[in-house]
Nucleic acid binder design. Sequence first.
DNA 1: CTGAAAGCGCTAACAC
DNA 2: GTGTTAGCGCTTTCAG
Lengths: 333, 333
Amino acid sequence: MDPNARVSANIKLVAEAAGVSRATVSRVMNGRATVAPELAERVLTAARALDYAPSQVARSLALGRTATIALIVPDLSNPMFQDVLRGLSLAAGADGHRLLIAESNEQVEDEEVLALEARRRCDGVVLASPRLPTADLERLVPQLAPLVLINRKLPGVPSLSVDYAAGIQDLVAHLLSLGHRRIVYLAGPPPSTSNRERLDALLHLSEQGNAFELIQVACGATFENGHAVAGAVASSGATAAVAYNDMVAFGALSGLHELGVSVPGQISVTGFDDIPFARFTTPPLTSAAVPRNTLGNQAWRLLHAQLTGQGAADATDFRPRLLVRGSTGRTNG
Amino acid sequence: MDPNARVSANIKLVAEAAGVSRATVSRVMNGRATVAPELAERVLTAARALDYAPSQVARSLALGRTATIALIVPDLSNPMFQDVLRGLSLAAGADGHRLLIAESNEQVEDEEVLALEARRRCDGVVLASPRLPTADLERLVPQLAPLVLINRKLPGVPSLSVDYAAGIQDLVAHLLSLGHRRIVYLAGPPPSTSNRERLDALLHLSEQGNAFELIQVACGATFENGHAVAGAVASSGATAAVAYNDMVAFGALSGLHELGVSVPGQISVTGFDDIPFARFTTPPLTSAAVPRNTLGNQAWRLLHAQLTGQGAADATDFRPRLLVRGSTGRTNG
DNA sequence: CTGAAAGCGCTAACAC
DNA sequence: GTGTTAGCGCTTTCAG
């Protein structure tokens, strides 16, 4: 009993068993029609008997392609990336491609290595919300290509982005239509680009139109962060709160509830992202829905196009969809 | 401008540029100390100049291992699998292994092909809650090994399972201690094994101890399902409801709230799974926490052991942890 | 229609 | 220490 007995049969073994050449086995296994039925039958029988299945690694080396792509995300516990992953997985899978996944766990310094490492074992990469500085990212492009970016734009690289500014604009327009003129922003993590974009949009809107006064409260990205600033929100004098994201909004909702502040009676609250739970809170949360599955799906389209030699390096923006629910109402202020 | 210009340099090119043999380049790239500093320097310089990085595919073929493992799940949108994925990804990543992921999208007939396909490009497989019939699964074991099963047991295969019965037992014990003697079960999807296990545990407990009366209400697995049966729950005469899972419990909570039934004042409600939101509902949900990250983490330990030749085919059961929160209280009935 | 042989890029004995 | 050489398992011209 040799412990090193073949893990699995290889093409040579099958060829010998079937009394044909390896080339013929290869042809049969790949469904080439140019093999005599009798031979094909013999090969298939031998393959079955030996539990033979071609090594995809050897195949990849010979063909120069792996039929595998990689997705690099900062954080797998973030619903945004979970849905991108799912959309990408389904779309690529439907086209016969496998998916390699790497999580940087928000460690910027690991992102580059992970991406390069992954790229070397597959045919292309999708980089979701990379935290890498632009200079580093640009330097990496040639080594990562074919590449698709999500929530990041770079000249010459196909990308898919969420137009956060447009989402904020819709939320603010909604609040203004309800009579709100004093709005407090529960800010996300300062280093985050998406916080930057939301804040810039708010600043722009308030300065430009002079239609409302903007108050900022440093907050964060979690339920706890939102919960912690409920007091500040209540005493801010604002009649509406725009939260960095849904989680923060939930925390605020919960905190306000505990303080006896009624939503939307005394203050309206909006989230951002429309995570699965937004529909189920009391009151249900008004939010801006990011088309997460679509992002994954389209990322595959863009990557697939490059893999088949139809590169089109355009940048697409997805406008979030405003979802008005029970957490916003007319101000009585 | 040859469009087929080398995608990236290979070892031969670097060897020539550095004026050494390919073996030396290989040694340097793998950090073997047995190379003269001067040569190593030349190699590294050449590699840098050519943007050289070893092909992992060729390396895998030569070494006979890929440093990659695969995870097969039925549904990536299920929090259970998301967390298993995350735990596995982090643990395997920390040990320098990549993760290939495949989703069967609940199509039993695809599971086998996906698993086999994945296995051929990596060193081992984790199969999470496979829906495959046992006979098929047993047949596949030799071809998938090294293999780890999650929520499924098979002789000779290392596996990790959640002891749902124990979780139910803890929840019931908790309710009994609060004085509840009439409990309604909001049943999950009938074909689901995990519903079967929970129901069996409940039946066993109620028949065995005679400590409480069990009422069954057909429900489902979603928020909407739970919401829809709130009326039936309220009129059942039960003082406590055990929901199939947290989502159903949330729906019930919401429906009861709308009906003006106070929780836990008039009726106590328990969930199962402790999904991230369970802490954040009003009232927070009493539930049984499934150690999802641990499952992923331990799956890697088990797989890693096999990869390094220390196979131990034991089956571990994880007892869910009872989390008492605000949705359960002493009965006034 | 089938087989022989070269090669994908890398590693690992084995000599020098 | 370093180079030579023979694979790893598969695909693919190119003859026949």
